[in-house]
């Protein structure tokens, strides 16, 4: 398989008044075309920083990011980000307007914009709310609309930073299933961040576990469980415990920091 995204020796440092934070230290990995990579790690380990660097929102200290053969630095519609925040839709545009506007900026003509927007709204089951304004939607619906907008732009990679992190457990599991269905249908390449172990296993072809201070890759684990995956199966539970242990050792971290236990929500 071809690598879609290659990260080479990435370092990111934040310089602040309370001293410097080495948010990422020598991160290298790649994501294959059509692959679903989940990134799992405790709070503050640099997950958001990593995805923001890939998206081009965060400057890096050293290292290289390749999208296919080309090196990238600035933000662009070839790497579309889905945020955790519910305010990522433009409140002054309707749901469909949010999508068609993004397509307009990218030079699509009017009839194509409408057709494409409708197609993706249907995919996320939001056709009925096409003319609604974002403030009239629930949190889960907003995230769906944001996913529809991202998919419509047909990016080379979808970067998702805990998009379901602020949702209740039930909505979250519905959206997880939908995301897998859409991904299988569209064949997009996805990097998905979470601090929830179950979510990481449910979604990912591989799970990249990170540890913090400084943010490094601890291990990349293949998920060899057939889809659809069920959390009750022994193989699922076995992997869950493996990831849990990988994360837990961090609790008695080298620098004695007492990190919050991940994955318990």
């Amino acid at each position: 398989m071809d690598a879609k995204v290659v990260i080479e020796n990435l370092w990111v440092k934040f310089e602040g008044e309370q001293g410097n934070v080495q948010a990422l230290e020598d991160i290298s990995f790649s994501v294959n075309e059509g692959e679903f990579l989940t990134i799992l790690g405790p709070s503050g380990c640099g997950k958001s920083t990593l995805i923001r660097v890939i998206a081009g929102f965060q400057s890096l200290e050293k290292g290289k990011i390749f999208l296919g053969k080309k090196q990238v630095a600035e933000p662009g519609p070839d790497r579309i980000m889905v945020f955790q925040e519910f305010d990522q839709l433009f409140p002054w545009r309707t749901v469909i307007g949010n999508i068609t506007y993004a397509l307009k900026v990218n030079g699509l003509d009017k009839t194509k914009r409408e057709a494409k927007a409708n197609k993706y709204l249907e995919m996320v089951n939001l056709q009925e709310f096409a003319r609604a304004f974002p403030h009239q939607l629930s949190g889960g619906m907003k995230q769906r609309a944001a996913i529809a907008r991202s998919l419509a732009l047909n990016p080379e990679i979808l970067l998702m930073d805990e998009p379901f992190g602020s949702l209740d457990a039930q909505t979250r599991s519905i959206l997880q299933a939908e995301l897998v269905r859409i991904w299988q249908k569209v064949g997009s390449t996805i990097i998905f961040i979470t601090h929830n172990i179950q979510e990481a296993i449910l979604l990912g072809d591989r799970v990249m576990v990170m540890s913090s201070h400084p943010g490094t890759i601890k291990e990349i684990v293949d998920v060899e469980i057939k889809r659809p995956r069920l959390p009750e199966t022994p193989e699922f539970m076995k992997l869950w415990h493996k990831l849990y242990t990988l994360l837990e050792t961090k609790r008695f971290g080298e620098n004695g920091r007492n990190n919050v236990l991940p994955g318990k929500d």
Partner: peptide, 14 residues
């Protein structure tokens, strides 16, 4: 202006 909305704007190519 919300940082997220600004970043979405830059992301889609503005």
């Amino acid at each position: 202006v919300s940082r997220t909305q600004l970043e979405v704007g830059r992301n889609i190519g503005l």
